[in-house]
Computed example of a mutant assay.
Amino acid sequence: MASYNNETVQKLLKAFMEFRKISWHNKKIAGYNPSEFKVLVTIQREANEKKTEMKISEISQFLQVTPPTITQIINVLEKDGLVERTIDPDDRRAVKIKLTPEGLKVTAKARLAFSETFLGLIDFLGEEESEQLANLLSKVQQYFNQQSHNQEGR
């Protein structure tokens, strides 16, 4: 492993700790928390691509969270009138989830707000630095995934 001066290590640590403090990934998007936003977008994407509704198990698999977690989120979204449950005509035991017209509006609004955040970052950094940041973050993810994999193999 290459030898790096302690100053660089400290600078990286500080940057990661400061980045974590801002909790940008926990901020509400158009009034909805990130997990609700992810569920709405997942349902919308499936509807747009395959013209179909989704089962809770499918949403759970796609987002890699447990079905009970998705059920809780769906309950909130249903109460807010953004999704509705329907019985699958081919399998009466299965329940399908789809966005309501209000859910479609809210999802579009949330997606726009989410995109505007990153467009603002691109305006702030510039196109070239934004591209560099995206590449560097991908490399950081690869590094930590590799570290995690190496530690599991011990």
Score class of each variant (00 low, 15 high):
3 S>Q: 06
4 Y>H: 07
11 K>D: 07
13 L>W: 06
14 K>E: 15
15 A>R: 11
16 F>C: 11
17 M>C: 12
17 M>S: 13
18 E>W: 07
19 F>V: 09
20 R>V: 04
20 R>W: 02
22 I>G: 04
23 S>F: 12
28 K>D: 15
28 K>W: 09
28 K>N: 15
29 I>A: 11
29 I>H: 05
31 G>C: 01
32 Y>Q: 15
33 N>D: 06
33 N>P: 07
33 N>M: 08
34 P>E: 05
34 P>C: 15
35 S>A: 03
35 S>V: 08
41 V>S: 13
41 V>C: 14
41 V>E: 14
43 I>F: 08
43 I>K: 05
45 R>Y: 14
46 E>H: 09
48 N>M: 10
50 K>F: 03
50 K>H: 08
51 K>D: 12
57 S>R: 14
60 S>I: 10
61 Q>N: 14
63 L>E: 00
64 Q>I: 05
65 V>S: 00
66 T>C: 02
66 T>A: 04
67 P>K: 11
68 P>H: 06
68 P>F: 13
70 I>Y: 02
70 I>S: 02
72 Q>S: 03
73 I>W: 10
73 I>G: 02
73 I>L: 15
77 L>K: 00
78 E>G: 01
78 E>S: 08
82 L>R: 04
89 P>D: 09
89 P>I: 01
89 P>G: 01
91 D>Q: 04
94 A>N: 13
99 L>G: 01
99 L>Q: 06
100 T>I: 08
101 P>K: 10
102 E>N: 11
104 L>Q: 04
105 K>Y: 01
109 K>F: 09
111 R>Y: 05
113 A>D: 04
115 S>E: 09
115 S>R: 03
116 E>V: 01
123 D>W: 07
123 D>G: 08
124 F>A: 00
128 E>V: 09
131 E>R: 09
134 A>Q: 03
136 L>R: 12
136 L>K: 10
136 L>M: 14
137 L>E: 13
138 S>C: 10
139 K>M: 10
139 K>P: 02
140 V>P: 04
141 Q>V: 15
147 Q>Y: 12
148 S>Y: 12
149 H>A: 09
149 H>P: 03
151 Q>M: 10
152 E>V: 10
152 E>G: 05
152 E>C: 06
152 E>N: 07
154 R>Y: 12
